[in-house]
């Protein structure tokens, strides 16, 4: 009990501090690094609350895949490197972010209240574990959307290859033309 509350306070303090860093750091690389820190801390919070599936997904998807992708974009697009961002956007982004915060808080409060109604009560989850509970619904009732999502990934991959390939073709033709 003591350890849980201690880790909660550590993780949440670090999460808030690094989130402030994301918003206020001028250098975009530092901002992305503190974003990684925020996401890892939030996943730590999930682990302390016993939501091990979301915690692991948070690390795998957000901290690893998406943020690494950000870093990749920043390092490949030369205009971004170490540039400061115009702070005028903050006048728009702060209220919008606050609205989204209210919306998320509302959804999670309502959702937590409603989720007790379904068949996966907290006792069942304790017995089965989160991963099993999610999988048993995802691969039975929601199998169809799951399969269609794989087609979406395939289409997105094909699209990335085509759009990447095309520039190469253009360069080739341009160099041929100049010769």
């Amino acid at each position: 009990m003591e350890l849980t509350s201690l880790s909660f306070w550590i993780f949440s303090t670090l999460a808030v501090l690094s989130a402030i860093g994301v918003v206020f750091l001028k250098n975009i690389v530092y901002a992305v690094l503190s974003l990684i820190s925020t996401l890892i801390m939030v996943s730590g919070l999930f682990f302390t609350m016993g939501a091990e599936l979301i915690g692991a997904l948070q690390i795998i998807i957000y901290a690893v895949a998406i943020v690494v992708f950000y870093v990749l974009v920043i390092s490949t697009v030369p205009e971004f490197k170490g540039e400061t961002i115009d702070p005028n956007y903050m006048f728009v982004s702060l209220p919008v972010g606050f609205l989204i915060f209210i919306e998320l808080a509302y959804v999670s409060l309502y959702g937590a209240w409603k989720s007790n109604v379904g068949m996966f009560t907290s006792e069942v989850i304790k017995e089965m574990g989160n991963v099993k509970a999610v999988a048993s619904v995802l691969f039975t009732k929601y199998l169809f959307p799951f399969e269609v999502a794989s087609i979406i990934l395939l289409v997105a991959m094909i699209g990335a290859i085509i759009i990447g390939k095309k520039d190469h073709v253009i360069e080739e033709e341009a160099s041929n033309g100049s010769l």
Binding site: P145, V148, V155, A156, G159, I162, I163
Partner: peptide, 15 residues
């Protein structure tokens, strides 16, 4: 189902 169908058609159309 609606969301996933919308996403499939939208992603393909962007490309």
């Amino acid at each position: 189902t609606f969301y996933i169908g919308l996403e499939l058609s939208a992603v393909a159309t962007y490309i």
